[in-house]
Design a protein around this nucleic acid. Structure first.
Length: 485
RNA sequence: GGCCCCAUCGUCUAUCGGUUAGGACAUCAGGUUUUCAUCCUGGUAAGGGGGGUUCGACUCCCCCUGGGGUCACCA
């Protein structure tokens, strides 16, 4: 099977998580069948043009390790193209679209329209008022060839519209099956805008054909415009590609995932401390289940099991809670050094490598977001502040807490520095101390832990001693003894 | 509103006519631990409604209901 898929984003300055999933599925599909995957920039709306958006988009794809066989790439800060079917940026293909649009005008499938936006708006309002389908009324179709010539020559603003034929249009979707629609429902879609740019509809059809795209995998919001595209394919005599419309990714209230209801940009999630691979895993499982026996999959597994037939039809709510859990799972699986290096960009101030390494080691199982590390690091680097009552174990009293602290202070100062190289050695030493002196764990460990962390909940005293090391630990315990006096 | 799409626990999902309807997140209750996190055990929780088809329907068909998408010189 000769497969070629594509990811055609409009550069808006960020990558939507829904777009990420679309890109991933296209990528998985191409990889699975040994096909090609291409990136095409659909920047035909100059009103939404954002400076630097293409570069940032490419950067995000790079960060997500989604590479493509053809399309624009950034080299030395400049956008260059790879592949033989370019240009891959639509704004650089204006002549091509014009040629195809004119071809349709010549063959009578499309016509010039000179109607003003005001007229069109008014028309639409009238149609809406009487609850009619909003469609162009073909006013300009009445124009004679001479009138059109005159208007064109005088430079009157114009667009080219499809002349939708009568009948019905049917297409097949790999996920949804056959879909049929009456052509009466289809508007005489504008193909070429007054500014010379094509609309999406003309551009996709032409580009997908010219670039050899065989499979179109995209969001469900496009399904209603497929008939227009099918008509275009037929007019041009292009083979009709295989369509697969993905279920939408939803807000908790089941509407299409939108910015208003939370983060929607991949960049935002990454900035919050989600791992690229966790985000990929999570988003891939929205609408697709590889093997149903687990939640965590590597990219290779995702590719291996990817199948358009396995994609669900109904929309999927983006549950940040589950993403958080999954991120925690990925963090726990990170090697110690990998975790340290991933966490570094989230650090606010300077932190010594040694202590950072120790902190990371004991916090790995307690953190779901990389960004959580900064608050944690702060708590180790500043003196703990707490009420002295906190030092008292629930089954004991203040007097005992003070006594235990005094004794353990003495004991810890007697411990060899070398023991502080390993939290397990520390634990052994202290456990032996408790046993030898016939003490209770809680009576000793609770005040000790609070004196070191200042918190009701924290890692174990052994881990804290290890992170803080001997000197700092003694300092904190001394302080606790003092405030209990 | 027209058209199109969709419909299993709160959420993500498994089930391709016969299952005590399974798993995961969340939640609740236990266990482990000085506390927390991790980890382990267990519980609550689902096939929108009505008709068919069939010996038998969550599964196939129809209707209703509900939800969503789309109706631009935006993608």
């Amino acid at each position: 099977m000769n497969v070629k898929t594509r990811f055609p984003p409009s550069p808006t300055g960020y990558l939507h998580v829904g777009s990420l999933r679309t890109a991933l599925y296209n990528y998985f599909f191409a990889k699975k069948y040994n096909g090609k995957f291409l990136l095409r920039i659909e920047d035909t709306d100059r009103e939404r043009y954002v400076e630097g958006a293409v570069e940032s988009l490419i950067g995000t794809l790079e960060r997500m390790k989604i590479d493509y066989d053809e399309g624009p790439v950034v080299r030395n800060g400049k956008i260059v193209e790879k592949g033989n079917n370019g240009p891959y940026v639509q704004s650089a293909r204006l002549e091509i679209y014009k040629k195809y649009a004119n071809q349709l005008v010549d063959s009578g499938h499309a016509y010039y329209c000179f109607c003003s936006k005001e007229r069109l708006t008014k028309l639409r309002e009238q149609q809406q008022a009487i609850k009619q389908t909003t469609k162009y009324d073909r006013n300009c179709l009445k124009l004679s060839a001479e009138e059109i010539q005159t208007k064109l020559q005088s430079g009157e603003s114009n667009v080219i519209r499809m002349k939708i034929p009568d009948g019905k249009t049917m297409f097949h979707d790999e996920i949804r099956g056959d879909v049929t629609i009456d052509n009466q429902e289809i508007d005489d879609q504008v193909l070429l805008k007054a500014d010379g740019f094509p609309t999406y509809h003309l551009a996709v059809v032409v580009d997908d054909y010219l670039m050899g795209v065989t499979h179109i995998i995209r969001g469900e919001e496009w399904i209603s415009s497929v008939p227009k595209h099918v008509i275009l394919y037929n007019w041009f005599g292009f083979p009709i590609p295989i369509f697969a419309h993905l279920p939408l990714i939803l807000n908790p209230d089941k509407t299409k995932l939108s910015k208003r209801q939370g983060d929607v940009a991949v960049e935002d999630y990454l900035a919050k401390g989600f791992l690229e691979e966790a985000l990929e895993n999570f988003v891939s499982l929205l609408g697709f289940n590889p093997t149903a026996d687990r939640e965590i999959y590597t990219r290779e597994e995702l590719i291996e099991h990817f199948d358009l037939k396995k994609i669900n039809k109904s929309g999927a709510v983006f549950d940040v809670n589950k993403l958080l859990w999954m991120n925690g799972q990925y963090i726990k699986k990170l090697s110690d050094e990998d975790f340290v290096s991933r966490v570094k960009p989230f650090l606010k101030g300077k932190v010594e490598d040694d202590i950072l390494r120790r902190i990371c080691k004991i916090e790995k199982s307690r953190i779901n977001l990389l960004s959580d590390i900064s608050a944690v690091v702060d708590s180790y680097q500043s003196n703990p502040v707490y009420e002295k009552e906190l030092l008292v174990w629930k089954k004991s009293d203040s007097k005992d807490a003070k006594l235990q602290l005094k004794n353990i202070l003495e004991f810890i100062s007697s411990i060899d520095e070398i023991v502080f190289n390993d939290p397990q050695l520390i634990e052994q030493a202290i456990s032996r101390y408790i046993k030898d002196n016939d003490l209770e764990n809680g009576n000793v460990l609770w005040p000790l832990r609070v004196s070191l962390s200042g918190a009701e909940r924290s890692p174990s005293p052994f881990e804290l001693l290890w992170v803080l090391q001997k000197q700092e630990s003694l300092k904190r315990i001394e302080h606790a003894v003092k405030i209990l006096s």
